Simulated assay, not measured.
Amino acid sequence: MKKFLLFTAGVIALVIVIANLGPMVLLGVSVWLLYLLVKQFLKTESTIKKIGWVMIGLILLSIAISNIYAVIGIAAAYVLYLIYKEWKVKKHEQIGKSIKDDPFTNFEKQWAELTK
């Protein structure tokens, strides 16, 4: 039952990531352009150029704010990663636990110690 719930949550998270893929890309591009713009703003010494960079920066900031729904997609991608990680850990833990709890394996170890 737990695997089914993990699978269902994973499918839902995947759909949310796919639905928010466009805003996620636009948010990333706008934040990257804002970073480049700040670097150019700090390099310039002319007041008119600084005013121009601020105007362009405000336009890019409005684009970034309009794509704030991409944060939901980023959160869904993180949830999808956690589900994948949980799915992988459970398989390895079950295999390791079954070997340790196997009475025949323990018997073989004890028998080998007694026959030494």
Results as ranks from 00 to 15, higher is better:
I63T: 08
V17T: 02
S30L: 00
Y81T: 14
S98D: 14
K3Q: 15
G96R: 08
I51S: 03
I99Y: 11
K50G: 08
L42T: 03
Y35R: 11
E113M: 12
Y78R: 12
F41A: 00
F41Y: 07
I59K: 01
T44V: 05
A9T: 07
L14V: 12
F41D: 01
M55Y: 02
Q40F: 07
Y69R: 14
L27V: 01
E108Y: 11
M55F: 06
K43E: 08
L33S: 05
A75F: 07
G22W: 00
S46T: 08
L114E: 05
F7R: 15
V89R: 11
Q94S: 14
I16D: 00
N20Q: 09
Q40P: 01
S30H: 00
L61I: 13
F104Q: 13
V25P: 06
K91R: 12
I95P: 04
K43M: 07
I68F: 09
W32I: 00
D101C: 08
L14S: 12
F104C: 03
K85M: 10
I18H: 13
I56E: 07
L61G: 09
K100Q: 10
G57Y: 00
V38I: 00
A75S: 09
K43H: 05
L14A: 14
M1V: 15
K88F: 12
D102H: 10
I16G: 04
P103G: 09
I48P: 07
G57N: 00
V71E: 10
L82R: 05
Q40W: 02
A77L: 11
A64P: 04
M1L: 15
A19F: 06
